[in-house]
């Protein structure tokens, strides 16, 4: 359907004309929409964190620091710590599965990949609400795995694994895995098909070939994926809320609680800014550590 004429990759230097008013007219709507719907809301949150809360209504304009003081008190810092640890654990498990899986998937013929890609896309699009519901069933006492294990005689009595720490992590990995696979997919599928075989003919065992030949080539994509997954999981609300005990409630649960239930928008905003700063710092750290070099402005999609 979309077969392009034979060509080299886009490294092509193209002549790009500055053609009068056209590009600016075309950009008017995207600029307006994204400014109003993305930039202004972010700025509003940044400002809101300093506003004064009115108990009866929403908030009034002001400049107070108590919201940030509360966002950084020992309770919320501990919540932040829990959120980061949970997200890091989920990110690590996700990558340990996604990297070899995506690599092996892209070594298969195109046609054979399609069913897996359809499954991955469908899982990715599954609502976090449905994921939370599904895992709460799967890990429950009356309708879950443990119930089935009892029936086939592998367990004595059925137990409930949800809510609990592992319920949260398993569901995090469930939503993160499809995201990671799709994020790694472009780079992995552009890897030279013969690379690992070349390593093999030179006498390297498969795993050694993978670690020494393939991994160095995809480090940047893996790093970007790790950061993406970490941020995505750190911002999840429904899963810790439905599958965790209060001890596993992450910052997004408390942000939502303050914003909707407690009507304390300024505190929610301050928490959101703290979360934003924290997630950016850790995401950059992940990229630097995993890729072994400072982050670049552009995404790492094209193959090295």
């Amino acid at each position: 359907m979309n077969r392009a004429p034979a060509q080299s990759r886009p490294q092509h230097r193209r002549e790009r004309p500055e053609a009068g008013p056209w590009p600016h007219l075309l950009l008017a709507w995207p600029s307006l929409a994204l400014t109003v719907l993305f930039l202004v809301p972010l700025g509003t949150i940044a400002a809101l964190g300093f506003f004064r809360r009115i108990p009866a209504g929403f908030f009034e304009v002001g400049f107070v620091t108590d919201n940030y003081a509360r966002a950084l008190d020992s309770f919320h810092l501990e919540r932040l710590g829990v959120s980061v640890m949970l997200a890091l654990a989920a990110t690590l498990i996700t990558l340990l599965v996604a990297v070899p899986f995506t690599f092996l998937l892209t070594r298969r013929p195109r046609r054979a990949q399609v069913p897996y890609l359809v499954l991955v896309l469908a899982s990715l699009s599954l609502s976090e609400v449905i994921v939370g519901f599904a895992w709460s069933l799967l890990l429950s006492r009356t309708s879950g795995i443990s119930n089935v294990l009892v029936r086939i005689g592998l367990m004595e009595t059925a137990v409930a694994w949800s809510p609990g720490l592992w319920a949260v992590i398993l569901a995090f990995v469930f939503v993160a895995l499809p995201l990671a696979i799709l994020s790694l997919y472009p780079t992995f599928s552009r890897l030279d098909q013969e690379l690992p075989e070349a390593a093999g003919t030179m006498g390297a065992p498969p795993l050694v070939g993978f670690v020494t030949v393939v991994l160095p080539l995809v480090r940047r994509a893996v790093a970007a994926t790790a950061a993406l997954v970490f941020i995505f999981v750190l911002g999840a609300y429904v899963i810790p809320q439905t599958l965790g005990r209060p001890a596993h409630w992450t910052i997004p649960v408390h942000i939502t609680d303050q914003a909707i239930m407690k009507n304390h928008l300024p505190l929610a905003a301050a928490l959101a800014i703290v979360l934003l700063v924290m997630s950016s710092v850790i995401a950059v750290a992940i990229v630097v550590i995993v890729s072994g070099r400072p982050p670049r402005a552009e995404p790492s999609v094209p193959a090295p």
């Binding site: 790009r16 600029s31 941020i231 911002g235 997004p252 942000i255």
Partner: peptide, 28 residues
């Protein structure tokens, strides 16, 4: 197609939502 300086900035705004924790986008 064109060389427009601020286009990259607009592009960054379009790609940024997925680099933010979802709850922040919602609160915004």
């Amino acid at each position: 197609r064109y060389r427009v300086r601020y286009a990259k900035a607009v592009m960054a705004m379009g790609l940024a939502p997925f680099a933010l924790p979802p709850v922040i986008t919602a609160l915004g």
